[in-house]
Design a protein around this nucleic acid. Structure first.
Lengths: 201, 201, 201, 201
DNA sequence: GATGAATGAGTATTCATTCAT
DNA sequence: GATGAATGAATACTCATTCAT
């Protein structure tokens, strides 16, 4: 990697962390360069605008999450487990666990929303292939695969984004997931353990 | 209604319209007062801050939508139709049909998101009572009623907000709705006509 | 005059002086408000932009110069003297005599040029009426009055703007002026004294 | 011509074109080097500063215009025609005819003004020799030759720069030119055709 | 000759909020 | 109830220039 490209990656990491910690709108260029210890001109040498930096940060996040998801896809696992694992690996916020102060999601709707739309776009094909495989092996049975996958993703992001879900929500979610993909009752019940395990981390 | 309260309502209507037309962040107090023809001090006499104005605008929208929804609840209708009708009446954006220029939803995530969360909070009890009635009459059959209602609302807002849904999405949505509430296949198929009808307006 | 209008006039005076002393481009808003002792917001309360301030400054200068010129027009004087006196009163830079440090004209071409164009537009009708009167009394004899007046103004601004003209230039100018307006030789020779007198100030 | 000198000339041509197309102030070094396809360091290897580039551009323009003018001076022509032809060949903007988009003259006062001053300095001796020749052959009759030549140049640049002159202006200009140089009425009337011909190009 | 990463002072503008009258 | 003058912190972005390699 060239020297310039490396520097750009560093900047990206810093911007990424600050956007998550403080929110995109609440993070000023001045703060970013102070943190990075560079001059303002240097920042603008690498990024044409703050907006572009956001775009680049989102690309970076997406790429990492998708890469992780693809590893899961490639790994040997029962279909239902694989489906759940991929969704789980895509969880926006996964990344953010390592960061101490995460801004209230209210103050970062911009980042959150952009990320979500991109994530859905990237994840639908990935998950659809799994569901298709499930259809073939008989563990799933459904049509409109892409649309159902999209629904699951929407439900996940709407339901679990804030980490304050209840047992009832999980129960209903499992049932709905099974029915959405035409699986036998109980097929997805392992999710319950997965989520609780995730919480205990 | 007192004179002061009346003026506050006028201001609210203006702010409401401008937020939708231009987006919350892109609407400045200066623009609001110019439109209203009042002095800046007058604005701050009625609203402690811009944020509070947003809150009041959202309250107003919610109230109107909930009132409309309650009328539907009170009206005599088969349960499944009533359920759908209430959800439909709550559709955020319903209000905005009368406004010429509506800002791109991207630029109004703040308003959009706040509204959505409030709407879900208000709508869940309303819809739950309908589902409960459905359970009693046997047309529905499900537990975790509130959670399932919430899911449906999440799916609706994620799927239908942008008016660019496909036939496959509608088909899948109908199937999923039936299964979520434990209804017989075909129970909710009338939705298809409802959505298309809504589009043809 | 209302309080606000008064403040605006003060600001205008300050901006005017600074533009002349330092040049338009070299004068920053920060410097203006520091000089005026006001907050940045206050500046923008009175002027929508720096460009508008320039426009307002030019208006002010033009108005004062035109007012002075109109006094001369109204005063009883022989036509040739009156013509010269009006031109002299319009001299851009007349104003600037009172200001200690005047920026090199090179650095203020913007102001200078805008002023010049406005001045010619304002002055042509005024001077034309004088020339017309001269035509009637027989002291002048020319057609294309407006065009000739414009020429004289162009010559003046091109020749005398920098105060470093020579005796030969004055001699030629007098001759040309007489011929432009079809006056008898010697009619305008008093100008020589006028210019030298002006210089001695 | 050495390789380095050649590259400098190329750069100059690019800067020249961009200054005219976009205005001096609106053209950034970044844009110049992007157009030229060179690195920033390379630019500064050839030019010590942007200001110096402007100076060099102006030199180049002047040289070309003066060279053209000198050809006219050397060609066999009646004196009055030669005088007019030289002035016409010096017209700033002559060069710019070949360039598609030329910035509004308002936005390029800096270039325009510098060029004008330089042009007058270069042209006065050239034209004076013609007028002197005219004095000797009797077609002209005037003193203060340099000063009168300067006046004509000032009038031309002030009157004809924007290509929107009227018939009256041309008529007056011809008359004034004749009188400035003490020529017989009608001597310069051919100018009328020259200007109209120039326009028809 | 040539590169391109780094600089940092400079700039205009926005806008929610306050408060004396 | 109503006014509007005053505030000032905040902010993104520009750009000519330098210099180690």
């Amino acid at each position: 990697m060239k020297k310039g490209e490396q520097r750009k990656q560093e900047l990206l990491k810093i911007a990424y962390r600050m956007f998550i910690e403080k929110g995109y709108d609440n993070t000023s260029i001045d703060e970013i360069i102070a943190e990075a210890g560079i001059a303002k001109g240097t920042y603008y040498y690498y990024f044409p605008s703050k907006e572009d930096t956001l775009e680049a940060v989102i690309d970076m996040m997406i790429n990492e999450e998708v890469a992780r998801a693809k590893e899961v896809v490639a790994s040997p696992m029962p279909i239902p487990q694989k489906l759940a694992a991929v969704i789980y690996s895509l969880r926006p916020g996964q990344e953010e666990q390592n960061i101490a102060k995460v801004v209230e999601s209210n103050e970062n709707i911009v980042l959150h929303d952009k990320l979500n739309k991109r994530l859905i776009a990237e994840a639908v094909p990935l998950l659809s292939s799994i569901v298709r495989e499930g259809n073939e092996t008989g563990v799933f049975n459904c049509e409109q695969i892409e649309e159902r996958v999209k629904m699951i993703l929407i439900i996940c992001s709407g339901l679990f984004d804030e980490d304050d879900f209840t047992e009832n929500e999980v129960t209903a979610f499992i049932d709905v997931t099974e029915k959405i993909f035409g699986a036998q009752p109980g097929t997805m019940s392992f999710i319950s353990g997965l989520i609780l395990g995730g919480l205990e981390q």
